[in-house]
Deep mutational scan, measured.
Amino acid sequence: GRPPQPKSVEDLLDRINLKEHMPTFLFNGYEDLDTFKLLEEEDLDELNIRDPEHRAVLLTAVELLQEYDSN
């Protein structure tokens, strides 16, 4: 089946190999997954995450988090 739900933002970023963005998220108040899963493209602009590939991966991760919630 699906991988288990990540336990933290750090756990999530670790899985998608984008842990380099951890300080950015923490500094901007994305300390838990409840906050993280509200992330949208405009937020990525504000966080200055410009890499299109990173953005795509992050937004996909957000969608997956929302799916875990609805099940």
Rank of each mutant, 00 (worst) to 15 (best):
E10H: 06
M22E: 10
L26C: 07
A56I: 06
R55D: 03
E53Q: 12
V57C: 14
L39D: 03
Y68E: 15
V57H: 11
D45L: 11
D34W: 04
R2W: 05
F27L: 15
S8M: 00
K37A: 10
R55M: 01
G29E: 02
S8T: 10
V57N: 14
D11G: 05
H21C: 06
N48K: 09
T60H: 15
E20C: 11
H54G: 02
K37Y: 00
D14Y: 06
A61C: 07
E31F: 08
P4V: 12
E41T: 08
L47G: 04
P6K: 05
P3L: 12
P3W: 11
E40R: 15
Q5Y: 15
P6N: 03
L38A: 12
E46D: 03
T35G: 08
S8H: 01
V57G: 11
L64V: 10
V9Q: 03
D51G: 04
M22I: 14
D51R: 05
P23G: 13
E53D: 13
D34I: 03
L12T: 02
L13N: 03
L59F: 03
L12M: 07
E42Q: 12
L12W: 06
A56T: 11
D43E: 07
L64T: 14
P52D: 08
L59H: 06
Q5W: 08
E41W: 06
T60N: 15
I16H: 10
L47Y: 03
G1P: 11
E10R: 04
L47W: 00
L39A: 01
D45K: 11
Q66F: 04
L12K: 00
N28F: 08
H21K: 04
E67F: 05
L39Y: 00
K37G: 05
L33S: 02
F25C: 04
L65D: 07
R2D: 11
L64P: 06
E31I: 09
L13P: 04
L47Q: 03
Q66K: 15
H21D: 01
P52M: 07
V9Y: 01
V62E: 07
E53V: 10
N71G: 13
F27N: 15
D14F: 04
D11V: 02
L64M: 15
Y30A: 01
E20S: 09
D11M: 00
L47H: 03
L47M: 13
G1H: 11
L12P: 01
M22R: 05
N48Q: 08
P6C: 07
L26D: 05
L58F: 06
M22S: 08
L38P: 02
A56E: 14
E31A: 15
D14Q: 10
E67Q: 13
L33M: 05
E31N: 14
N28I: 00
K19Q: 13
L26V: 13
P52Q: 08
D14M: 09
L26K: 13
T35N: 11
P23T: 12
K19E: 08
V9N: 03
H54C: 05
E20K: 03
S8C: 04
Q66H: 12
L26F: 11
I16K: 04
E53C: 10
F36P: 01
A61R: 01
K7L: 09
T35Q: 13
P6M: 10
E40D: 13
E67Y: 08
D69K: 09
Y30L: 06
Y30C: 04
F36Y: 01
T35S: 14
E42L: 06
T24F: 01
L26A: 11
K7E: 13
G29I: 01
P23E: 15
F25W: 01
L12F: 11
L44W: 03
E53H: 12
D11F: 01
S8W: 00
L13V: 00
Q66W: 10
P23W: 11
D14C: 10
V62P: 07
V62G: 06
M22F: 14
P3C: 12
D69L: 02
Y30F: 13
V9H: 01
P3I: 13
L39C: 04
Q5K: 10
I16T: 06
Y68W: 12
P3Y: 13
P3S: 12
T60A: 15
P23Q: 12
K7Y: 06
L39H: 02
K7S: 12
Q5C: 13
D45G: 02
L38Y: 11
H54Q: 13
F36V: 07
R55H: 05
